[in-house]
C-alpha cells in the first residue's frame, strides 16, 4: 500500500499549495507553494524522504510527457500570433540562448573561484 500513502502525502501537499494560492493575494501558483511546503517538510524531517520518494520520482520521470498537450495546442493559437511571429521568434531564441549562457557562466565563475580559494 506504499504507493497509495505516498500519493496521498503528495496530493495533501498539493492541496495545501492550492489553498495558499487561493487565499494569499500573491501571484504565486499552487505548485510553487507546494514545492516549498514539501521541501520544508523534508528538510525539517516532518515528512520522511521514504514516504514520498517512489511516487515522486515516478511523477518527475513522466513530467516531460505532461507538456505535450499544451505544446500541441500552440498550433491552435497560430491565428493570434501569425502577424508578429518573426519578431517574437527572434525575442524567444535570443533571450533563451543568452539567459542560459549568462546565468550558467556567472554560476560557473563563482563555483570555480570558490574552488580555488578553498
Amino acid at each position: 500500500m506504499k504507493f497509495v500513502k505516498q500519493f496521498l502525502i503528495i496530493l495533501s501537499v498539493t492541496c495545501a499549495g492550492e489553498a495558499l494560492s487561493y487565499f494569499l493575494p500573491l501571484p504565486i501558483p499552487s505548485s510553487i507553494y507546494g514545492m516549498v511546503i514539501l521541501f520544508t517538510g523534508l528538510a525539517t524531517h516532518k515528512i520522511s524522504y521514504e514516504s514520498v520518494q517512489d511516487v515522486g520520482h515516478f511523477l518527475i520521470e513522466i513530467m516531460p510527457v505532461m507538456f505535450i498537450p499544451a505544446a500541441v495546442g500552440i498550433l491552435e493559437s497560430w491565428d493570434k500570433i501569425k502577424s508578429v511571429w518573426v519578431q517574437y521568434a527572434i525575442v524567444v531564441v535570443v533571450t533563451t540562448v543568452l539567459v542560459m549562457g549568462v546565468s550558467g557562466r556567472v554560476t560557473q565563475h563563482f563555483v570555480e573561484r570558490k574552488g580555488k580559494n578553498g
Partner: peptide, 9 residues
C-alpha cells in the same frame, strides 16, 4: 502540479 511539487525531492 503534483509533479512540480515533487521537484522538492
Amino acid at each position: 502540479t503534483p509533479a512540480t511539487v515533487c521537484l522538492a525531492i
